[in-house]
C-alpha cells in the first residue's frame, strides 16, 4: 500500500508540473491501456465493462476519465460516453438499444475508446460477441441429485440454438468468493448434467447458491447464471444466549455459590452491627 502512495505521489507531482507547463508539454505523454469485456450476469443484464489503466511502472486504474462506447458495423455509431469509476471501470448497459447493430450470424461488434488528455495518450479496443442464455436447473433421479445447465445462443434472427462444447464452470457462492467445484463442457444438446456434491454445507436451512459461469469466452464473453437450492448440509444455529465462564452471564451454580457465601459472611457483619447497637443501649447494671 505504501508503495502505491509513493506512486500516487510521484504521478501527482508529474501531473502538477505538467499542468504548469501545458505549452511545453507534448512528447512525454503516458501510455494508457483499455480493455473491454462483455458480461451477462444472472439477472440477464448485459453490460460492456471497459477497464482503463495507465502505465506507471505497472498499470494502475485510471478513474474519472471518459470512455466512449461505439457500435461497429460498416460505420461506428456512438452509443454513450461514460466516466470510469474508482476501479477504472466504465460500465455500459446494453439493454434493447436500437443503435446496436447485429449481423446475420447474431454477432454484435463494439469499440471502446479513450481520447487521452494533455498528459495521457489515448487508447481503444474492439470486441465482438454473440448473445447466449445459460440456465441452471436442479433435478433428482432416484436418490441422486443433479445440477443441469443448458446453454443456447441467440442467432441473427433471434432464434435460439444449443451451444456445443462450451466450457462451463460451477461454483458455490461463499461469503467472500466463489468456490469452484466442477468444470464441464456442454454436450451436443448444449447441456451439462453433473452430480450435486452432497457434502457441501449450506446455510441454517441448507440453502445454497450454485453459480454456473462461462468465463471470457471468445464468442460469448462472460455469461453467468444462478440457482438456489436447499440441498446443502444445514449449519446448526448457534444459541446466542448462554451461561458460561466465557459468556456475559455467569453459570447459575456460580451465581448461587457466590450469593450463598457472601450473604453468609455479610449476615454475620450485620449481626455484629446489631449487637454493637445493643451494647450501646445496654442498661447500667451496677
Amino acid at each position: 500500500m505504501k508503495s502505491l502512495y509513493k506512486h500516487i505521489l510521484i504521478i501527482g507531482l508529474v501531473v502538477i508540473i505538467a499542468a504548469g507547463n501545458v505549452f511545453a508539454q507534448k512528447n512525454k505523454k503516458k501510455t494508457t491501456r483499455i480493455s473491454v469485456e462483455y458480461v451477462k450476469d444472472h439477472n440477464k443484464t448485459e453490460t460492456l465493462v471497459a477497464k482503463l489503466r495507465v502505465k506507471e511502472k505497472r498499470y494502475i486504474s485510471l478513474n474519472d476519465a471518459i470512455v466512449k462506447f461505439y457500435s461497429v458495423s460498416d460505420t461506428s455509431v456512438l452509443l454513450d460516453k461514460i466516466r470510469t469509476n474508482k476501479d477504472g471501470e466504465a460500465i455500459f448497459v446494453i439493454g434493447d438499444n436500437p443503435k446496436i447493430f447485429k449481423d446475420s450470424l447474431g454477432f454484435m461488434a463494439f469499440e471502446v475508446e479513450y481520447d487521452g488528455s494533455t498528459s495521457l495518450k489515448g487508447s481503444n479496443k474492439k470486441i465482438a460477441v454473440k448473445q447466449s442464455n445459460l440456465e441452471v436447473s436442479f433435478f433428482q433421479k432416484d436418490t441422486i441429485k443433479f445440477i443441469e445447465v443448458e446453454a443456447n445462443e441467440i442467432g441473427g434472427n433471434n432464434q435460439t440454438s444449443p451451444v456445443k462444447g462450451l466450457k462451463v464452470l460451477f461454483y458455490v457462492k461463499g461469503t467472500f468468493s466463489l468456490f469452484n467445484f466442477a468444470k464441464e463442457k456442454t454436450d451436443n444438446k448444449g447441456k451439462i448434467k453433473i452430480e450435486f456434491p452432497v457434502t457441501m454445507p449450506g446455510d441454517t436451512n441448507g440453502e445454497l447458491t450454485i453459480v454456473a459461469k462461462v468465463e471470457e469466452d471468445d464468442i460469448y464473453g462472460t455469461v453467468e447464471s444462478m440457482g438456489e437450492i436447499n440441498w446443502g448440509i444445514p449449519v446448526p444455529l448457534v444459541k446466542e444466549k448462554q451461561r458460561g465462564l466465557g459468556d456475559t452471564d455467569a453459570p447459575l451454580w456460580m451465581v448461587y455459590t457466590l450469593i450463598t457465601l457472601l450473604s453468609a459472611v455479610w449476615f454475620h457483619y450485620l449481626y455484629v452491627i446489631f449487637m454493637i447497637i445493643k451494647i450501646k443501649l445496654a442498661k447500667r447494671s451496677f
Binding site: I276, I277, K278, I279, K280, L281, A282, R284, S285, F286
Partner: peptide, 15 residues
C-alpha cells in the same frame, strides 16, 4: 458506644 463495662456488655462483646 456507652460502654460501661457491665456484665451484659461484656457478654455481648465476648460472644
Amino acid at each position: 458506644v456507652n460502654w460501661k463495662g457491665s456484665p451484659e456488655q461484656y457478654k455481648i462483646l465476648h460472644s
